[in-house]
């Protein structure tokens, strides 16, 4: 005689089972308190820069970070190239200027738009 417990019987048996006790309300109180403490910590963490540093020095997005550093390095190398007049300090001291300051522009040389005339003079 087949005496195996059927699937249907088992399902009914387990679903109808009442254990006669329920979770203690003290558990919920303790968990809510624990969550409150965690949430407090979470806000401090949110305001700190620790998260950014963690991301920066983590192994995530390594190709992206490497590309960014390479570009930054290239730009900095380009910028340190010497250019003419880069290190000359503009002089504001008028005692160093030998040319008299002429208010009357009559004595000034003529302003020639044609630069070919400069060669003649």
């Amino acid at each position: 005689m087949r005496n195996n417990v059927s699937e249907k019987d088992l399902a009914t048996f387990f679903r109808n089972d009442k254990i006669g006790s329920s979770p203690s309300p003290a558990v919920e109180t303790r968990l809510n308190y624990a969550f409150l403490l965690k949430r407090k910590g979470f806000k401090i963490y949110q305001n700190s820069i620790l998260g950014s540093f963690t991301w920066l020095f983590s192994l995530k997005y390594i190709p992206l970070k490497a590309a960014f550093v390479s570009i930054a390095l290239l730009v900095s190398l380009y910028n340190i190239q010497q250019k003419a007049g880069q290190y000359e300090t503009p002089v504001l001291d008028s005692t160093m200027i030998n040319m008299p300051f002429n208010i009357d522009t009559f004595y000034n040389p003529a302003f020639n738009t044609d630069t070919c005339l400069f060669l003649e003079s």
Partner: peptide, 24 residues
């Protein structure tokens, strides 16, 4: 994200099921 109401809701949904599981 630190939402306490969400935690309470989730606890309410699963407390009886988990309690039963541990009990048995």
């Amino acid at each position: 994200q630190g939402n306490q109401a969400a935690f309470t809701e989730l606890y309410t949904r699963y407390k009886d099921r988990l309690f039963y599981f541990f009990f048995r």
